[in-house]
Computed example of a mutant assay.
Amino acid sequence: MYMNVKARSRSDILFDIFNYGLLTIVLLIVLYPLYFVVIASFSNPTLVNSGQVTLIPKGINFEGYVRIFNDKMILTGYGNSLLYTALGTLISVAITIPGAYALSRRELAGRNLVMYMIVFTMFFNGGLIPTFILVKNLGLYNSFWSLILPVAVIPWNLIIARTFFQTSIPDELREAAQIDGCNEFRFFFRIALPLSSALIAIMVLFYAVGYWNTYFSALIYLKDETLYPLQLVLRNILIANTISPDMMENVEQASKQLEIASLIQYGVIIVAAFPLLILYPFLQRYFVKGVLVGSIKG
C-alpha cells in the first residue's frame, strides 16, 4: 500500500509539473504581444521593423508619445471617454440588473415572449441606415446620448444576469422572505443585490470595456470634435501622421514620417488600453464567475 501511495504521489507531481509548464507557455504566448507593443512604442522604428527588437528596447525614442500628448484633443478625448464609460455603465447596469431579475421570476406573465423578442434582436436588426435615421429622429444625433442610449442594454449581458438570478437566488429564499413580510422591491434591494456582487462586477467590466472602446458609433453619430471619445481622437492623430502624397517626392522626409507613424501606432495602443489594464486586475476575480454563469442553461 505504501508503494501505491508513493507511486500515486509521483504521478501527481509529474501532472503538476506538466500543468505548470503548459500554463507558463500559454502565459508567455499571451503576454509577449503586449510586452512587445510596450517596448516597440519607445524603440527605434527601424530596429523594430528589421526584427532587432524582441526582448529589450533599443534606440529609445519617445517621439511617438510626444506627438500623441501634444495634441490638444487628447485630454478632451480622455475626458469624454471617461464620461461615456462612467455614465453609460451606470445606466446600463441600472437597467440590466433589475430587468434580468424581473425576467427570472417564473410568475411574471409573458416573460418567455419578452425573452424571445430580446434574443431576436441579437440576430436581426434594422441595419446601419435605419438605425441612423432613428437616432437622428430621436434627437440624439451629435450628442453624447447617441453613444449610450442605443446600446444601454446588451441582450447577451441581460441573458447572463437572468441566468445568474435563476441559478443563484433560490425560490425558497424568496418565499421565506415573503413569509416575514418582505415584498419584491425590498427582497431585490436587501437580499438579491447583496448576493449579486460577482454579477454586478462582471456587468460593470463588460459594459465599461464596451463604452471605452466605442469607435464606430462615434464615427457615425458625432460631428462635433469636442464630443469625440478617445478612440476617435487617436484615430485622427494616427491619420494626421501618415505619409501624404506630397511627401513622396522627398524620400528622407517620407522615411522620417514613416518612422514617427510607426511609433504612434504602438503608442496609440498603449494609451487606449492603459485604463482598462488598470481596471481589470480589480475585477478579474469576478471574471471567471461571470463566464461560468453565462455557460449555464437558464
Rank of each mutant, 00 (worst) to 15 (best):
Y116P: 04
L222T: 08
F206M: 12
L83Q: 05
R162S: 00
K289R: 12
P194R: 12
Q52M: 14
D16F: 15
N19R: 07
D16I: 15
Y215N: 07
A7M: 13
V268Q: 09
L28C: 12
V151T: 13
A240S: 13
I296H: 01
G298W: 02
I191S: 10
P170I: 06
F123Q: 10
M117L: 15
K58D: 14
A218N: 05
L75G: 08
W212K: 00
F42K: 01
R285F: 02
I191Q: 10
L199V: 11
Y228D: 05
G294A: 08
V291G: 09
L14S: 11
V26H: 02
S262V: 05
L108D: 08
I95D: 02
R162M: 00
L75A: 14
N44L: 06
Y211H: 11
G139M: 07
L263I: 01
G79W: 01
G267L: 00
I56E: 06
S143I: 00
Y32H: 05
M115K: 05
M1G: 15
L55K: 07
Q231I: 04
L232T: 08
T163D: 08
G88T: 09
Y266Q: 06
S9M: 11
A152Q: 03
N157Y: 05
R174W: 02
Y141D: 03
D224A: 01
A254P: 12
I56N: 07
F120Q: 15
E184N: 09
P229T: 06
L90R: 01
R10I: 14
I260P: 00
N19I: 14
N250G: 06
Y116R: 12
F124N: 10
A100V: 08
L103E: 08
F120R: 13
D171L: 11
I91K: 09
I74T: 10
N236Y: 13
P98W: 11
R111S: 04
R10M: 13
V26Q: 03
L283Q: 07
L277Q: 00
Y228L: 04
L292Q: 11
A201C: 15
L158M: 14
V151R: 09
V30L: 09
I202S: 13
T121N: 12
S43A: 04
R10K: 14
T167R: 09
V204N: 04
G51P: 05
I17F: 10
K256D: 13
T131W: 06
R285K: 12
T163L: 03
S244P: 07
Q265R: 07
F15Y: 14
R162I: 00
K256R: 14
N241S: 12
